[in-house]
């Protein structure tokens, strides 16, 4: 409780935090709202071959869990920027240091930030639930929770991505640099490594986090579609997160603040 209170006091009047969080919710909601009107043709002509999302029955249970969890995965970058900002503020204002001077142990101080990361991930998952609740169209004989394991995978995906950002902030001390390094790694380095050395492709961290939920739209071409998330894949993702956080923890214990 004490720790929640400390973090809440910092956040409640921090406008940037609420604006970014608001943007996350609003843009994601807009995309969900308009998702079934999305269509494109390969040739660019109106009646050419292509995709039309309105045939996908995106909002029907149980499919909605897969579609929404997959799409929400694109917005996790906003959450990562949010976390990086909050972490770097503490380093820049030297309040992270001051907390130790004021009496937190190094472990407590570190766990405060891990708590923030978990809370953001849980919040994103909660929003996903709310969106499913709002947009979902009931289908006969199908329960609300069928295939809701996609939401759990989404939670782990966000947590994984955030722990990667969390890890970076411990080694790079400027918000802008961390964000740029994260983007470069995500867009260029990891995919390139994956292509060059195909044996490790499926074991690179961001790939592990992201590939828990495979792309759902291919069903229109008759491809088989993922119906559940393998437990071992979730365990692997959680293990990666844990390792990243542990490295940051050990580094944090040893260095001068």
């Amino acid at each position: 409780m004490k720790y929640l209170k400390i973090e809440w006091l910092k956040l409640k009047s921090y406008n940037t935090f609420w604006i970014l969080l608001g943007l996350y919710v609003v843009t994601q909601t807009l995309v969900f709202y308009g998702m079934d009107s999305f269509k494109f043709t390969f040739s660019g002509e109106e009646d050419g071959m292509g995709m039309d999302f309105k045939y996908l029955r995106i909002f029907s249970f149980p499919n909605i869990w897969h579609y929404f969890s997959y799409m929400a995965g694109f917005f996790k970058i906003i959450l990562a920027v949010l976390l990086i900002l909050l972490m770097n503020n503490e380093f820049e204002y030297k309040t992270y240091r001051q907390h130790i001077i004021d009496g937190l142990s190094r472990t407590e101080n570190f766990m405060l930030k891990v708590g923030t990361m978990l809370t953001i991930s849980a919040f994103a998952t909660l929003i996903l639930f709310a969106e499913v609740l709002i947009f979902g169209k009931e289908s006969e004989g199908i329960s609300f929770f069928q295939q809701s394991d996609f939401a759990l995978a989404f939670f782990l995906e966000v947590l994984g991505f955030l722990s990667f950002a969390f890890f970076l902030t411990h080694f790079i001390k400027r918000t802008a640099y961390v964000v740029v390094v994260l983007l470069i790694y995500m867009i260029a380095i990891e995919p390139m490594l994956g292509y060059k050395i195909s044996e490790i492709k499926d074991h690179l961290p961001l790939q592990v986090f992201r590939s828990m939920i495979s792309i759902p739209f291919t069903q229109q071409f008759g491809a088989s579609v993922q119906e559940s998330v393998p437990v071992w894949h979730m365990v692997k993702s959680l293990t990666y997160s844990t390792i990243l956080v542990l490295i940051a923890y050990v580094y944090n214990l040893r260095r001068d603040q």
């Binding site: 004490k2 910092k10 921090y14 204002y93 030297k94 240091r97 001077i101 004021d102």
Partner: peptide, 29 residues
């Protein structure tokens, strides 16, 4: 450290918070 009062180098506080809110954080720690 919880029971002593200390200043090291610069005053470190959240710039966007007022004095009372900043001290509330110190108090909860």
């Amino acid at each position: 450290r919880q029971n002593i009062g200390a200043i090291l180098e610069t005053p470190n506080f959240y710039p966007y918070l007022n004095a009372v809110d900043n001290l509330k954080i110190t108090a909860s720690i």
